[in-house]
């Protein structure tokens, strides 16, 4: 074979490799296409639309009219009820978010120390409230405002109170009750990820830790377990931020919608009010956009905190 032939042959081969790669890439895009199309249509496009409408007045019947930042200005400067809802959402998010997150990790860690069979049972017990449909409805019987309510009758019988307390209609008690119910439900997807992640930490690292003189389980947690769990912790953080900032179903089911004096009004219920009752879509979109930005910022803050873990 002459040099010329060799050269041509080589060239043909490189070309075919490149062609193969390109075809393979094309296959990649084809595989991704159905998901990407639906995902962009039903998740990204609505989010983008929401941001766009937040600068307009839009009531569905008339075409949207551009009004600049008026929605945001009204929200922050004029809408007292929005400020109440922000306050409530922040109280809920700040209490149930971090506490729920820490509790999820703590109990996942405790459960990991249990023998195998007991561990399976414990995971079901702790995880069940978060997947039990709308089982939180049952708290409306426990906290019922008349004397037949379980808590009231118990407190009356032991003599702490003389007349029943309206747990779910008195603004003084609504938030604590809601926070309690949310904490009860806070062992969700993140908790599962923690249980699984703890199980998956390389045992050899613990063995090495014993040799290197790690004295107790707390040191083991800080120096070995937590650094190994960082990806799960990030995932759990995303999950609990989403859950903590978008509370609405529980307050609506327990305290009513709207609740007395808006004492259990959250940002999402406020969004419902403007979106589905008053059809002021531009205003509702501005609420959604602010909520989403807050969630992203909270997530960024937590990520940078977790990055420093165990170092």
């Amino acid at each position: 074979m002459s040099t010329m032939h060799k050269f041509l042959d080589l060239r043909r081969r490189t070309l075919s490799v490149k062609w193969y790669q390109a075809r393979q890439m094309r296959v990649c895009y084809l595989f991704l296409l159905p998901f990407a199309a639906l995902f962009l249509t039903f998740y990204i496009l609505p989010m983008a639309t929401s941001i766009r409408y937040s600068f307009t007045y839009y009531n569905i019947l008339e075409p949207p009219r551009y009004i600049g930042l008026a929605n945001y200005i009204n929200l922050i400067l004029q809408d007292d009820i929005f400020l109440i809802s922000v306050k409530n959402t922040f109280i809920i998010a700040v209490i149930t978010g971090p506490i729920g997150y820490i509790l999820s990790f703590m109990f996942a860690w405790f459960i990991n120390e249990l023998p195998r069979w007991l561990r399976s049972v414990a995971v079901v017990i702790f995880y069940a409230p978060s997947i039990a449909g709308n089982a939180y409805f049952i708290f409306s019987i426990i906290f019922r405002g008349d004397v037949y309510g379980y808590l009231n009758s118990f407190l009356v019988r032991i003599g702490v109170i003389h007349s029943p307390i309206l747990w779910l209609t008195d603004p003084k008690y609504m938030m604590p009750v809601v926070v309690m119910v949310l904490l009860w439900m806070s062992m969700g997807t993140g908790f599962l990820a923690f249980v699984a992640g703890l199980k998956g930490v390389d045992q050899a690292q613990y063995e090495a830790g014993y040799v290197d003189g790690i004295r107790n389980r707390w040191q083991e947690l800080y120096y070995i377990t937590l650094p190994n769990m960082r990806p799960m912790l990030l995932f759990g953080a995303v999950m609990s931020i989403t859950a903590a900032f978008s509370v609405a179903d529980q307050t609506m089911a327990l305290c009513g919608y709207p609740s007395t004096d808006y004492a259990a009004h959250t940002v999402v219920t406020h969004l419902f009010d403007y979106g589905y009752t008053r059809f002021d879509m531009g205003y509702a979109s501005a609420i959604a956009t602010l909520l989403f930005l807050t969630m992203i910022l909270a997530n960024k803050a937590i990520q940078s905190m977790l990055r420093r873990l165990g170092t």
Binding site: F39, S50, L271, A288, M295
Partner: peptide, 21 residues
């Protein structure tokens, strides 16, 4: 990365524009 961000979209945030879509 976009998918990871979308983990944070609760149905409520995208509910209204989703209806329009």
């Amino acid at each position: 990365r976009l998918v990871v961000v979308a983990l944070m979209f609760s149905g409520y945030v995208t509910g209204i524009p989703n209806y329009l879509v």
